[in-house]
Amino acid sequence: MRNKIEIEDLKVHYGDIPALNGISLNVVENEILGIIGPAQSGKTTLLKVINRTLELTQGVTIEGSVRLDGIDVNSIGDVYGLRKRIGMVLPLPVGLPLSIYDNVAFAPRTSGLRNKAELDVIVERCLQQAALWDEVKDRLDSLGTKLSGGQQQRLTIARALSHQPEILCLDEFSIAVDPITTMRIEEVLKSLKNEMTILLVTNLVQQAKRLANRTAFMLNGDLVEIDDTEVIFSDNPTQQSTYDYINGNFG
């Protein structure tokens, strides 16, 4: 089992406000790592450090190191190429103001792919994977922003898969999705695990329990505990606060 991502003593400040206070963790290749914790605990910040979109925020300082396949992400010159290796699904579904087809074809096109037949294949594959194809195959030309919230969320998942990423980061994807669709996407994630490494940030602790091989619990910018999901969700995880959070004693 190889480490896909190695994070070492990662500290992030927004101006004077600390967001991450020295976090170290590894993500193993082809696992689903669940990340749970209440709001403001630094989960989203962690994801944004990995694909280096956090540095676009004004006034942010980042210390420590994030290594992808053993290479420090900050030493990678082609930051756009790096971002293409990491699929990112944001909490609120953002259909770009383009057609459904163009939404999914966006990333391949930015890499210079123009061949319509190849794009068609990618669009269909990604929409299939995101469990959206059957609902939209007859109206690929209509605006992505006109889909319902749950459909838009699946569209963003399809989009994130369009450049065949090595890592898929999902940031609370099920906020805008109904339970049935959530289940369908969870099935998709289980099968995608064979092809890629998945980081699943979620507010639904049961979702982490269902899907994750290992689970990390974060609180106020600290990593409280990371362990096999069975251990975290057992009656005696190492930290008392983990037990309290999972069992609804606070938060």
Binding site: T53, Y80, L90, F106, T110, T156
Partner: peptide, 15 residues
């Protein structure tokens, strides 16, 4: 134009 559009496009590796 909402910042979320910029963020989404940047996360997809757009320059």
């Amino acid at each position: 134009v909402p910042d979320s559009y910029r963020e989404a496009a940047e996360a997809l590796g757009a320059t």
